[in-house]
């Protein structure tokens, strides 16, 4: 599953909030890389800096210093972007959060279709692809339901389908199973592993759920802004 070019490469990434007496180092010289087709778990206590790292490499919360390379391309140096971030996110990244964050006035299939259309896929084709993704994730029978008519697990599956709409190189998931029961939580984790292995995407999952650690190819741990790698 590995290739020459890393899915993501992070070099000496730091994030500092405030200054002087109020300075907080949320992330301290973090350096790591993820291979394509690899599913990685990111563990750590609350306030360790996991979400800060995830949002920094997700290009929605710029770091204070350090470099982010995605697919071999330098995307950010410190808080300076070298690419159009929104366009880059559209093309290369997929996101899944604790809450599904589905658009409430769109049906399940429309939520996914919209993500396809944003990636310049024509409406008809986008609809077809959205239906296929929902089928792949096992919620084809709920595709015409609005989000409030779906269970938490179903909503999260639709959110995963949306994250896959642009065939991303990198999927970032921030505690995607926190709102789910253990069975559904496990299903979602297995889904990430399946996506990573079958579609070659690199998946980074921030989680507190220690029952699903076996699905990860790698496990990273973070504490007080410092990243370490745990061996199985």
């Amino acid at each position: 599953m590995t290739g020459d070019v890393k899915a993501i490469e992070v070099v000496k990434l730091s994030k500092i909030y405030g200054s002087g007496n109020t300075e907080i180092i949320a992330m301290n010289d973090v350096t790591f890389s993820l291979e394509k087709g690899e599913v990685t778990g990111l563990l750590g206590p609350s306030g360790a800096g996991k979400s800060t790292l995830l949002t920094a490499i997700g290009l929605i919360n710029p770091p204070s210093s350090g470099t982010i390379l995605i697919n071999g391309q330098t995307v950010m140096t410190g808080s300076v972007a070298h690419v159009n971030l929104r366009a880059f996110r559209r093309k290369h990244m997929g996101y899944v959060f604790q809450k599904a964050n589905l658009i409430p006035f769109l049906t399940a299939v429309e939520n996914v279709q919209l993500a396809c259309e944003i990636n310049d896929i024509p409406a008809k084709e986008a609809r077809k692809k959205a239906a296929e993704l929902l089928g792949y994730l096992g919620v084809a029978d709920r595709m015409k339901n609005l989000p409030h008519m779906l269970s938490g697990g179903q909503q999260q599956r639709v959110a995963v389908a949306r994250a896959l709409a642009n065939n991303p190189n990198l999927i970032l998931a921030d505690e995607p199973t926190a709102a789910l029961d253990s069975v559904r939580g496990r299903q979602v984790m297995e889904l990430f592993a399946k996506i990573a292995h079958e579609q070659g995407a690199s998946v980074l999952v921030v989680t507190h759920d220690h029952r699903s650690l076996d699905v990860f190819d790698r496990i990273l741990e973070m504490e007080d802004g410092i990243l370490t790698e745990r061996t199985h």
Binding site: I60, A87, R89, R90, Y95, N101, I103, A115, I118
Partner: peptide, 16 residues
């Protein structure tokens, strides 16, 4: 606001 933030996150253009 939340929906618009989500649209921006997944890369929707301003025209959308």
């Amino acid at each position: 606001i939340h929906d618009i933030a989500m649209l921006k996150l997944i890369g929707a253009r301003n025209s959308v």
